[in-house]
Each structure stands twice: as structure tokens, then as C-alpha cells.
Amino acid sequence: MNAQARQGWLLVAPATLLFVGIVATPLAMTLLLSFNGWSSTQGIVPTLTVQNYAEILSDSFFAEIFLRTLRIALWVTLICVLIGAPEAYILRRMREPWRSSFILVVIGPLLVSVVARTLGWALLLGGNGLIPLALHRLGLTSSPVSLMFTETGVVIALVHVLVPFMVLSVWASLARMDPATERAAQSLGASQITIFLRIVLPQAMPGILSGGIIVFSLAASAFATPAIIGGRRLKVASTLAYDEFLNTLNWPLGAAIAVLLLVGIVAIVVGWNRFIERRYSQVFAS
């Protein structure tokens, strides 16, 4: 080992040890826990068994919850792309000082506690909330229908929580774009829509895809928002694991649910990343 490498390793050693000690070890223990048995009288039984996984994979109750989690995450991602990408483009075309102020408006909610933001949606979506009343007034529903404890409600609130990530990600992509390309297309006779679809969108694509990854993985593992809006009645994978841990006290089963959630998210994210790299490495290299 040369002097450079030795000094380098010396400097990263504290953080590495910290991480091995308090990230890698607990995660390994959780994985181990998910293979332990459990009984309501003895609690955790230190045996090695795949019983928890077998139970989750065979029971349609669990399958429904995992499918719901996936469905919610996909809807949230899709809606975030559809409203977040155009908003980023609109922000980019704004002039100062409008642009800076509205970027603050977009980033600001990220700093506000998720609990406080979700509380706002609970007020809006509840039976006496503004949205059910508005839907009723517009004649879309015969009486005000509460959106609390529904998938629609969870999706709306999660979009609100996560859409800033999409805007920021697309914004970062657009910032790398040479604005002259738009003017070049215009000088060649392209309409505004053609410019957006043929010039801007392809250049924003890496931002949309990486923003999609962030939004999807956060939506699939979100806890506070589905717990408040979905409540006990509409469970997703994370609230299910929470119940197993803090209410049923079946830790091994809860751990298995968490491990499956993690594996599922990592598999989708890694696959997605591969796709992006293969698709865009030539165009956006260096």
C-alpha cells in the first residue's frame, strides 16, 4: 500500500467503523431476526426457519397489502412525473425574481414536517373537508364522500409530500441544458410544443428518471402519510410492519415484512438504474 492509500484509509476509518458498527450490524441482525420463530406465549424463538416468509408469500392478506403498496407507489410516481416535470420547465422559463421565489415555494414544503403537511391533507380530505364538499358541489358525488382511509387519499397526500423531489431532479437536468438549443429549434421553425417534446423533454429525461427512482422508493416505504391518511383500515407494507412490531409484538414477522419491502425496492431501483445507464450513458457521458 502506498502512502496515499494509507493516509486515505486512515481518514475514512472513523466513519467506516461507525457505519459497520451501527448500520451494517443492526441490518444483519434484522435479517437474522426475520428467520426466527415466534409464539404468543414465548415471544421470539431463536430458531432458524423460513416460516415467516412462507406465511407472507402464501397468505392473500399480505399479498393484497404488498400489491396495494406497489400500486400506490406507481400512481404517485406517475402523477409526480406528469405535474413535476412541466412545473420544473415552467420555473426554468421564469424570470428573476419570480424564479427564485417560486423555487423557494417548491423547496419550502420539503423542510416542513411531513406530519404537519399530512395533517393538512387529513383536514382537506375528511368528510367535512374542502375536497369532498367541492366534489359534491360540482355534482360529481351525490353527497360529500370522505377520502380518508382511501387509496386515492393516500396517493394525493404522497404526491404532495414527494413532488418537490421530482421538480428538483428535473430542474437539475434542465440546468445542464444549453438554452441555445431551444432557440436553435425555434430558428429552424419548431413550434413551442415541438420544442418541448423534441428538444426539452429528451434532455430532461435523465432528471425525470432519477427523480422517478427517488419518488418511487420513498412512496413505497412511506410511513407517516399512509399511517395518518390510510389509518388502520387501509394498510400498506410499512404500516403493517409497524403494527407487527408495536401492537402484535410479532417481531420476526415484522422483520420479514421489512426485509421483503427493502429487497423489493432495491431490486426495482437497481433495475431502473441499469436501464438509465444503458439508455443514456452515451448521450450524457462526461
Partner: peptide, 23 residues
């Protein structure tokens, strides 16, 4: 190592919470 240090961003906080509870 850099990827390792960024890993907590990828791990859902739910999983971290469970891991710490057990630990």
C-alpha cells in the same frame, strides 16, 4: 466507500427503525 456512506439514503427509514429497535 462513497456508495456505502450514501447507503442510508437508499434504506427506508422504516427498515432502519426496525434494525435499531432490535439492535
Amino acid at each position: 466507500l462513497n456508495a456505502f456512506f450514501m447507503a442510508p439514503l437508499m434504506i427506508p427509514h422504516l427498515v432502519l427503525g426496525i434494525a435499531f429497535l432490535r439492535f
